[in-house]
């Protein structure tokens, strides 16, 4: 056990470099997936509020199904479905079949799942904006789009931020599930390092520590952002 810490060295007999590379791809996948999830969520929330019956029901099925089925099952389903669809399309347009790169596949599957959750967060936040503010914006002659970009969305953000911060933490932790599908990120790098050295306990502790640091740093960033967006609002609690 006394050489256990040598395993964490950054250069090759040690696996520290691999873990840090894994952490980097975890952060990349999480950032990409979070961004995709936010875009889907914003679109989904606007669609649920202003859309016609067909769009509303489609979105309702999307959010309900995604939120009722385990992430692990969804990740596998979406991965196979995505590659199949992409390859069918590519063949139709006369291109070669291809394998999706792990990074992009991870971003797409996790982002698609996160989209369902952030749809609900945004929808709740939109509903929390007092209707008087929207009417006031329209009354001074703003178009519907301008009223949204200038008033509704900025007023909605403080309500959405706690939920969004939570979703970011869930996203970073969900990326670990990609290890089960075989995408290279922190969890898989750790598994390989632990398997090669048999120092299971130490490597999983090290990975847990890295994830914990990511969470703690994220918490600081989000509390800063929240303070910024809450400026000018009455203090709550």
């Amino acid at each position: 056990m006394e050489n256990a810490f040598e395993y964490l060295a950054f250069s090759p007999p040690g696996w520290g470099g691999n873990l840090l590379r894994g952490l980097l791809s975890t952060i990349q996948i999480a950032l990409g997936a979070y961004a995709l999830g936010l875009m889907l969520g914003m679109g989904g929330a606007l669609g649920k509020i202003y859309g016609g019956p067909v769009l509303r029901w489609t979105l309702e099925i999307y959010t309900t199904l995604i939120r009722a089925v385990p992430e692990l099952v969804l990740i596998l389903l979406l991965y196979y479905l995505g590659t199949d669809l992409l390859n069918t399309m590519l063949e139709k347009f006369g291109y070669e079949r291809m394998d999706i790169d792990g990074l992009w596949a991870g971003i797409y599957v996790i982002g698609f799942v996160q989209g369902a959750y952030s749809t609900e967060v945004f929808r709740g936040a939109f509903n929390a904006v007092p209707s008087g503010q929207i009417e006031a914006a329209r009354a001074v002659g703003m178009s519907s789009i301008k009223a949204h970009t200038r008033v509704v969305i900025p007023a909605m953000l403080p309500f959405a931020l706690p939920g969004l911060a939570n979703l970011w933490l869930i996203t970073t932790k969900d990326t670990a599930l990609l290890a089960v599908v075989g995408f290279s990120e922190l969890a898989l790098e750790t598994k390989q390092a632990a398997g090669a050295t048999k120092a299971y306990f130490m490597f999983y502790m090290a990975a847990a520590f890295l994830y914990l640091m990511l969470t703690i740093v994220s918490n600081f960033v989000f509390s800063y952002i929240e303070r910024y967006y809450r400026r000018g609002q009455p203090v709550q609690g």
Partner: peptide, 23 residues
Amino acid sequence: CISIRGTPLLIQLWLIYYGVGSL
């Protein structure tokens, strides 16, 4: 609470099964 909520359940599971289990 912070440690449990700040790390993925998958890592906790592997830590307990492979890590503690190997000790």
